[in-house]
Simulated scan of single mutants.
Amino acid sequence: MKRINLKVAVCLLAGSFLFSSCFVGKYGLWNKYISWQNNMTNNKYVNAIVGLILVPIVGSICTLVDILVLNSIEFWSGTNPMAANNIGKTQQVMGQDGRYYAVTTLKNGYEVKAPTGEITYFIHNDENDSWSMEQNGVQKEIFRFDEKGNIQANINGETKAFTLNETGVYQARMIAGDGVFFAMN
């Protein structure tokens, strides 16, 4: 009876190490597959039909690889193996002003090149879990995550704490002057 309990305990322990936190990963392979499947042609109906055929096969394989391998690697190492493939890639992104910006993925953040040629860097600092913006050699912290999981944002020269929910986002937008205003007659 003791041998069976020992075998069960060893299997459970090994399984806990192998499959730990596989559900909180970024599912990088699955997301890349879905992005490809949604953009493989310019016709959304063709994409949907091909998706119906491929998702049961390819989607299952991608999900299984994510759960068993990639998300476990991400949990234990702290890095997503699929995210490394984006380093150095540049995408054209339309800004709120209707102009296109070149956004290049860096190892620790992003480089954004405006249509005017001005370059802005958004840099993540792993040591204090913060994001900073750098323009013309001047770096300014935008926000950081605190030990409670909230953010400490630098808005209009003041550092304020916000919760990561709709209320916190609303409060930050109102303080920054990015709220919705209604006109009355």
Rank of each mutant, 00 (worst) to 15 (best):
M82C: 04
I87D: 01
G59A: 07
I67S: 06
N39A: 03
V103W: 11
S35V: 08
V58H: 04
K107L: 10
T105N: 13
V65F: 12
I53R: 02
V50F: 07
G88I: 04
S21R: 13
T120V: 15
S21H: 15
G59P: 02
N80L: 01
V138S: 12
C22P: 04
S72L: 01
R99G: 03
S132R: 07
G117I: 03
Q135C: 02
G137M: 11
L106G: 05
D97V: 07
A114C: 08
D66I: 05
I57P: 01
K32Q: 15
Y110T: 03
E141Y: 04
N39Q: 01
I57G: 07
Y45W: 11
N125V: 01
Y45A: 13
W30D: 11
F122N: 06
S72K: 03
C62A: 15
Q96H: 08
Q139H: 05
G88E: 04
N108T: 13
K26C: 06
G117T: 07
W131V: 13
T79A: 01
Y33G: 06
W131M: 14
A84F: 03
C62G: 02
I49Y: 07
T104A: 09
T79L: 02
G51L: 05
G59D: 08
F23R: 10
T116S: 15
K26A: 12
L70Q: 04
A48W: 10
S77P: 02
M94L: 10
D126E: 14
M40E: 00
Q96E: 13
I73W: 06
Q37C: 09
K44N: 10
I73P: 01
T105K: 14
N47Q: 01
V69F: 13
G28T: 09
L54R: 03
T116E: 14
N136V: 02
I123E: 14
D129A: 14
E127D: 13
N125T: 10
P115W: 08
D66V: 07
V93D: 03
L64S: 13
S60N: 12
Y100M: 12
Y101P: 07
